[in-house]
Lab assay of single mutants.
Amino acid sequence: ALNRGDKVRIKRTESYWYGDVGTVASVEKSGILYPVIVRFDRVNYNGFSGSASGVNTNNFAENELELVQAAA
């Protein structure tokens, strides 16, 4: 299972961040479909780089994520 702070690569092909590595911000335990919230260094097309207006978190299912580096 994934944990907060883990570095993960995104495998959801239609995602803006496909192939990117993000950090797990939190994992919901309530049984929702996309329980893993991942935070990225770059914002998506809703904002400009360096601006706070873009979105830099997204929810994924565990099977859409590949663990790159476990949290220390």
Rank of each mutant, 00 (worst) to 15 (best):
L65V: 14
K11Y: 03
R42Y: 07
S26D: 13
T57H: 10
K11V: 08
S51E: 14
S49E: 15
Q69T: 12
N63E: 11
T23K: 05
R12E: 06
Y16A: 05
Q69N: 11
A70I: 09
D20L: 06
T23Q: 06
T23W: 06
N58I: 08
A70W: 06
F48K: 07
Q69F: 07
T23D: 05
G22S: 02
G22P: 04
A71R: 06
Y16I: 04
L33N: 11
S53K: 11
A71C: 14
D41P: 05
G47H: 10
Y45S: 15
Q69D: 10
I10C: 15
N58M: 13
V24S: 02
V8W: 00
L67H: 03
D20P: 00
P35L: 13
L67E: 01
P35N: 09
A70E: 10
S51M: 09
N59V: 06
N44H: 07
N44M: 14
F40K: 02
R39L: 13
V21G: 01
V43L: 09
A52I: 09
N46P: 15
S53C: 15
L2W: 04
V21M: 05
V36Y: 10
G54M: 04
G5Q: 02
T23V: 11
W17L: 01
S26M: 06
V55I: 12
S49I: 13
V24P: 01
G31W: 08
K29P: 12
R4C: 15
V36S: 00
V36E: 00
G19M: 12
E64H: 02
A61D: 09
Y16E: 06
A71Q: 10
D20T: 05
A52K: 07
R9D: 02
N56V: 06
T23L: 07
S15N: 03
W17T: 00
K11N: 09
R4A: 13
V21R: 00
K29L: 13
G54N: 03
Y45P: 15
L65K: 00
F60L: 02
S26F: 13
Y18S: 05
L2P: 05
F60H: 00
R9M: 09
S26V: 09
N58Q: 15
N59I: 06
S26Y: 12
E28R: 08
D20A: 05
T57G: 04
G5F: 05
F60Q: 00
G54Y: 04
V21D: 02
V24W: 00
R4M: 12
T13G: 07
V43M: 11
K7Q: 12
F60S: 00
V55G: 04
S51F: 05
F40T: 02
F40Q: 02
A71L: 08
Y16P: 05
N56R: 07
D6R: 00
F40Y: 00
I32T: 10
G54D: 04
V36R: 00
L33H: 10
R12L: 07
A25Q: 14
D6S: 03
G54H: 05
A52M: 08
G50L: 03
E14T: 11
L2S: 04
E28M: 09
S53A: 13
G5H: 04
A1E: 10
R12S: 06
F60R: 01
A1L: 10
V27M: 06
T13Y: 08
A25S: 09
N3F: 07
S53R: 04
E28W: 03
G5I: 00
A25R: 10
N63S: 14
N59C: 15
F40I: 04
L2K: 02
S51D: 14
E62M: 10
V27D: 03
K29G: 13
N58Y: 06
N56E: 07
V21H: 02
K7S: 08
V55P: 04
K29E: 13
S51L: 07
R4E: 14
L33I: 08
Y45I: 15
V8K: 00
N58D: 15
N63W: 13
A61K: 07
S51G: 09
A25C: 15
T57C: 13
G47E: 15
G19D: 09
I32N: 13
A70H: 11
T57K: 05
E66Q: 07
Y18E: 03
T57I: 10
G19A: 06
E28K: 11
W17C: 07
K7F: 08
K7P: 02
E14M: 06
D20Y: 08
G22R: 01
G50F: 04
G47F: 05
V8S: 01
G47A: 06
I10K: 01
A1S: 12
S51Y: 04
A61I: 05
S53M: 10
R4H: 11
V55C: 15
W17D: 15
N59E: 09
E28T: 07
A72Y: 08
G31C: 14
D6M: 05
E64S: 00
R42A: 10
S30E: 12
V43I: 12
L65C: 07
A72G: 10
L67M: 06
Y34H: 12
Y34G: 06
E66R: 03
Y34K: 10
E64K: 00
F48Q: 14
V27L: 08
F40D: 03
V55R: 04
Q69M: 10
K29I: 13
K7D: 03
Y18D: 03
R39A: 10
